[in-house]
Design a protein around this nucleic acid. Sequence first.
DNA 1: TTGAAAGCGCTAACAG
DNA 2: CTGTTAGCGCTTTCAA
Lengths: 347, 347
Amino acid sequence: MNFEAVTIKDIARELGISPSAVSKALRDSHEISPKTKGLVLECAQRIGYKPNPMAQSLKRGKSKSIGIVVSTIDNQFFSQVINGIESVAHNNGYNVIITQTNESFELEKLNVQHLTFRSIDGLLISLSTETKNIDHLKDLHKKGLPIVFFDRTSDEIETHKVIADNFNGAYEATVQLIKAGYRKIAHITSSVNVSITTERLKGYQLALEENNIELNEKYIKYCLHGGKDLAEIEHALSELLFSDDRPDALFTASDRITTTTLALLHKLKFKIPDDIALLGFTNTQLAAVLNPSLSSVYQPGIEMGKKATEMLISMIESKRPVTEFETVILPTQVFIRDSSKPVGVIS
Amino acid sequence: MNFEAVTIKDIARELGISPSAVSKALRDSHEISPKTKGLVLECAQRIGYKPNPMAQSLKRGKSKSIGIVVSTIDNQFFSQVINGIESVAHNNGYNVIITQTNESFELEKLNVQHLTFRSIDGLLISLSTETKNIDHLKDLHKKGLPIVFFDRTSDEIETHKVIADNFNGAYEATVQLIKAGYRKIAHITSSVNVSITTERLKGYQLALEENNIELNEKYIKYCLHGGKDLAEIEHALSELLFSDDRPDALFTASDRITTTTLALLHKLKFKIPDDIALLGFTNTQLAAVLNPSLSSVYQPGIEMGKKATEMLISMIESKRPVTEFETVILPTQVFIRDSSKPVGVIS
DNA sequence: TTGAAAGCGCTAACAG
DNA sequence: CTGTTAGCGCTTTCAA
């Protein structure tokens, strides 16, 4: 509720002119005399007039709000992205409606539906790990809803996308492990459904290939729910750790998986990196003070949020339908710390 | 924009009845025959009718959205709180508008103003560290805007509040340090302005007092921006570490301060807990895998968000003005880990 | 340059 | 039980 319930009519009455004149004056229309404009502006200021956004929205058919779909906000990477989204949106007079899928396809559909009920002007989405089919988005896209994908995208819709350089991040990370002397490098990753999994996998594979290390399929473990369930990571990890051919290094592909893996290795009393090295994607600012300090691939979360929102708003506000789309790839940074120290070096 | 632009009129036309009848049928009014209701519902379903929330809001004078003010979303504790807020709000058909103050009083005022422009039905706020004066909220409160404080509250407005048991958390934490053999316990805390600082300070003081340890004012360091600036924590810390009477333990009072202190101690090559012990408020799930594993006071962030939102929505939807207010205090949990191991014990 | 009037989609008082 | 009408606050023709 707007508690400054001063309307255009109040100004009109005060000045003895018509509401429509006031409206025009406030919008700085050319068909209003400078004198009247001055009076209106002064009066609006004086009696504390604030436009009612709901009335404007109803009239204009725009809600000035954008919907966000992420897996969960309680995650370093996504909270940074949302931080970025929020700042750009706010600066442009938009507010954001955040919804969480918890990696569930059903919840993703429900959330998208809920958002359209709320009359959003555009959608920013990072797909859930369960999502294979995006018909729920195709329909909306066809009807003209501006959509920008970030992080976990889909090829099935042509629109703007913003991702981190997952390929290079993974490539670089794997190369660093190889340089440090590890050869049996396992990869614990998210669901095959999501784009980031494929991109990271490719980087990992190329690094191995270039270094003449044969790919061992048993070293690649997928977590269908992106590590949401502790059990799936526990399962993947124990298959790796208690196999005949235990890997000497782990390359983990997401924030949740990386930190959970670290915690599990602790619990299992594995020494890092002596028993097994660890390097993973994570955006935690605590990487340097973990035990051991954690080698990591960092994604520019805030920038990703900002860029995606800028693109979305430009689509929303574009006069003519946008037909040229862009996929922005933001650089990742690899930090080498103790958890991937060279083999055989005693600290 | 609602891309399912089917309106009540479409149903009315389809069925050859009046829009108001349709409206009433949809709202299950008693003055509509079951037969008509059935027809309307079926037709609504069939042609994909979705109510336009902006029109409803305009009519009802309610926006079904609530405003949130926090220092920054990119912080474990607050992102957990927002997670809780979001889930309850969403379940009750509300959406949330998040704004961040970055601990700035000016931004807090601006955000609150912005939120009222956006016609929020209620406000959830955790004050910035800079905030001493809350006239910007008093005005709104007087005009009838439902407000619920969480985390950092103010006595100057009588309304619902939800806080963690800061007093007990701090008391318990300090007692644990004393039990472990530490006697020179310093306290690095946030700004004196915010409620949590006082509450935590009191717990700290009582623990010392009960154990006949004299309070040393020099051991209490305030960070006016809650640790937003690295420099202020650096400054506080070096005053403590390089004084004649260096403390043997640190009790830090917020997420940011705790993790930054840990990082700085690392940088300065201080051994924890041998050179100095550390125990602090933090909500990071990584506490157990930090180096060393970090003793911590954990606040129920998600619950805090949920509870605050439930209270706010009950105020918003209350038929009569609410006059009985409650301050809910949620328990904190203290986890003792290696960073506060008993003095003299070699691991 | 200004004003009257219609209408965005929905609801509610009042008639019928 | 159903329809007519007016109006939430604002914008936008169109007419004056």
